[in-house]
Nucleic acid binder design. Structure first.
Lengths: 224, 224
DNA sequence: CGCATGGTTTGATCCTCATCGAAGCATTCT
DNA sequence: AGAATGCTTCGATGAGGATCAAACCATGCG
């Protein structure tokens, strides 16, 4: 009936809430794994996998296999631009943003992002580590500084033995709109926070809640 | 689970083939009636009406009631830009354009656009009428020229008695990408073409097929 | 008024597709 | 090799929504 490119096909890919959440999560430019995207979208892993297949087939995503992990990312700036455009219209015509509930507040402060910490606390931590030259930041790239090994060893984190997965990665924080620390180091830090019982995870949520003494300890170690 | 504007809602509106066709048809900037959009989308009038309600509720369309007619148009340039962006991605990743079938060829030459003629023939006709100053064109606006009344009266078309609906309107042609003539004059011309049996409509298609003598007559009257 | 025309609403049908549990692959770690 | 982890495929279920026929409203015409 109609000629031209099949815009309905593309739009319907974005038109599913789960897929839209995934694409939104990928708008930061960081490629993410299926597990993390499932978490972001709030669906089970099989469901997420199915959605990812469709997005791949539709040409909206690229896939980079690294060992046992499979990192999904946006196919390119054109796709990102399209998401931007749709977001713009949604913002303009949408029923205005829902007021943030109490749990959202906690999420903003600190939450789990796959295997590392995200939120205001996490962004502040990365800023401070870079300030102190423990980590060296070059735009998107983060590397260990000269004093990193000794600094992290002091708190029981080993950054010497290099695994395949990058030690440091920047991950865009959707609440603060700036990067926080991902990678094995980010994961190790989150492990320590939970192991030391500085904070606990909210049930059925990604929120991470610090206890008062836990918060002090965290600030002493990472924000001093 | 996710904050921010509801992009899935907007995208899913565009994600239905019928609605996508309607939006595509409106990309020319001309507001169209429900009947015409139903024709463009290839669905029944009730179905089209339902879709139009959804697009209205979603804020993608505006509605201008003129007497018994209701003209639907895109809500604004932002919406048009979004469609453009989606089209761009669809074009880039899409399975390339399907090769045009034989019927598509005929459609390109001449077809019905609601109640008037569209396609290469129609675009050529408008060009010629403007060239000869029978019609005066000022960008999107088309008006009758001084010699219009006598010229059209000679072939049995009355442009004197003014109805509510505009006599002339520009309508963007999707195959040629330039405007052709709509409005009551466009409708009257199509009527004449069919009444004189210069051409006939294809069954179950919008294609209009000229007979050899019909084509000559048409060219003599409108392209001379 | 009554008829015709343009549009919407209602109701019923049907089908796609989103979802998740369970099982199956693949890769890495020990 | 065996265990563990990350991810995909299969199968069954269920819900949303696209569709059209028929009935219903509204506007214009004679």
């Amino acid at each position: 009936m109609r000629e031209g490119p099949d815009i309905a096909r593309i739009a319907s890919l974005v038109g599913d809430p789960a897929r839209a959440n995934m694409l939104n999560a990928l708008m930061g430019g960081t490629a993410l794994t299926a597990s993390e995207l499932a978490l972001e979208a709030g669906v089970s892993l099989p469901t997420a996998s199915s959605h990812l297949s469709k997005l791949m087939e539709g040409g909206l995503l690229t896939l980079a296999s690294q060992g046992r992990h499979r990192y999904y990312g946006l196919a390119g700036p054109q796709v990102a631009g399209m998401i931007e455009a749709i977001t713009g219209v949604a913002e303009a015509v949408g029923p205005r943003r829902v007021r943030p509930g109490p749990r959202d507040g906690a999420m903003r402060v600190a939450r789990v992002c796959y295997d590392h910490l995200a939120g205001e606390q996490a962004v502040a931590m990365l800023d401070r580590l870079v300030d102190k030259n423990i980590l060296l930041r070059d735009d998107k790239e983060i590397r260990l500084g000269p004093s990193a090994a000794s600094h992290f060893a002091a708190i029981g984190i080993d950054v010497q033995t290099r695994p395949r997965r990058p030690v440091c990665r920047a991950c865009l924080d959707w609440s603060v709109r700036r990067s926080h620390l991902a990678g094995t180091l980010g994961a190790a830090i989150l492990d320590k926070i939970l192991a030391e019982k500085w904070a606990r995870r909210e049930k059925d949520s990604r929120a991470v809640v610090f206890s008062p003494p836990g918060k002090q300890a965290f600030e002493r170690v990472f924000l001093a």
